[in-house]
Every structure is written in C-alpha cells, then in structure tokens.
Computed example of a mutant assay.
Amino acid sequence: MKPRKIPMRKDIVTGEMFPKKDLVRVVRDKEGKVTLDPTSKANGRGAYISLDVAVAEKAKQKRIFDKAFEVKVPDQFYDELIAYVDHQQARRELFGDQ
C-alpha cells in the first residue's frame, strides 16, 4: 500500500515547514477579526504557527500577525495564543503525539 502524504505548512514566525498537525491556524475573517482556529476549518485568511511557547512569544514580540493580516491585533489575542500553545505543548508531553 502507498504511504499517505503528510500535508505540510509553513510556520509564519520561523519560516520552517512542519506537518499540519504540529501547527495551529490563526484566521482573519471578512470583518477583520483575528481568532485561533484549532479545527483548521474556519473561513478566512489563515496563517500557521508552531506549537512552541518560545515561537508564540516571538510572534507577540515582533507583532507577526499584525503584519501578516494587515490589521491591528490586540495584545489580548497574543496572550490567548501563548496560553493555548502552552496548553497544547503540555498535552503532547503528557499524552504523547496523537
């Protein structure tokens, strides 16, 4: 049987390619609201960031999503992103790669 193709996406902060399941999608909708999209199915312009707290903090420091989506993203969103990434990173350490 032929091996399944693993979808790859580019991390917007580091520029590295990772399997899609190792990243979280951030979406800007038509109204300009930026949100996390853990299901990767929300409508809108998406960008990916790896599940690493250091990368999420770097995104906040450099205001990466402000530049990518050409919209003013509040600090509260970056704090929410860091908390989400931290939680997902802890889950992976506890339960292994699922």
Rank of each mutant, 00 (worst) to 15 (best):
K30N: 11
D86I: 01
E80W: 02
R4Q: 10
V53Y: 03
L36E: 08
G32L: 05
M1T: 14
K58M: 11
A47I: 02
D22K: 10
Y78W: 01
V71E: 10
E70I: 04
D37Y: 06
T39S: 14
H87K: 15
D75Q: 09
T14L: 13
Q61D: 05
A54Q: 12
K62M: 12
L36F: 10
L36S: 08
R91K: 15
R25M: 06
T35H: 13
M8R: 09
F77S: 04
K72N: 10
L23T: 05
T39I: 02
P19D: 06
P3T: 10
E57Y: 03
S40N: 13
D79Q: 13
P19T: 09
P19E: 10
A90Q: 14
P3R: 15
K60E: 09
E16C: 05
Q61M: 08
F77Y: 08
A47M: 07
L36Q: 05
D75N: 11
D52E: 10
F18S: 03
S40Y: 12
K62I: 12
A59Y: 04
V24R: 08
K5E: 13
K58H: 07
D22E: 15
E57N: 05
V73L: 01
D86C: 02
V71G: 00
R25T: 05
V34K: 03
D37L: 06
D22P: 00
L81P: 00
G15L: 13
I82S: 04
Y48I: 06
L81H: 09
R28Q: 13
V34G: 01
F18W: 12
G96S: 01
K20V: 11
G15P: 03
R92H: 07
K41M: 10
V71H: 01
P3M: 14
L81T: 06
K30Y: 04
Q98M: 06
M17Q: 13
K2E: 15
K21N: 11
K60M: 09
E16V: 06
G96I: 00
Q89D: 07
G46L: 06
V27L: 08
Q88A: 09
K21M: 07
K21I: 11
K2N: 14
S50V: 12
D66T: 04
D86S: 15
E70A: 13
R28S: 09
E93I: 11
D79C: 03
V34M: 02
G32P: 01
L94T: 10
Q89K: 12
D97A: 02
V24M: 08
Y48Q: 01
I64H: 08
D22S: 07
E16M: 12
R28Y: 01
D97H: 01
K30T: 14
D11A: 11
K41G: 03
D66C: 08
P19Y: 04
A68P: 00
D86A: 15
T14M: 11
N43V: 03
D97P: 00
S50A: 14
P74F: 12
A42W: 01
K30S: 15
Q76T: 14
Q76M: 09
K60S: 05
Y48W: 14
F77V: 08
M8C: 02
D37H: 03
A56W: 05
K10Q: 13
E70P: 00
E16S: 11
P38Y: 07
D97C: 00
K72F: 02
V13C: 10
A83C: 01
D37C: 05
G46A: 06
T35R: 15
V71T: 15
K33G: 00
R45Y: 11
R25L: 03
D29P: 03
V73I: 07
K5Q: 14
K58W: 02
E70N: 14
A83Q: 06
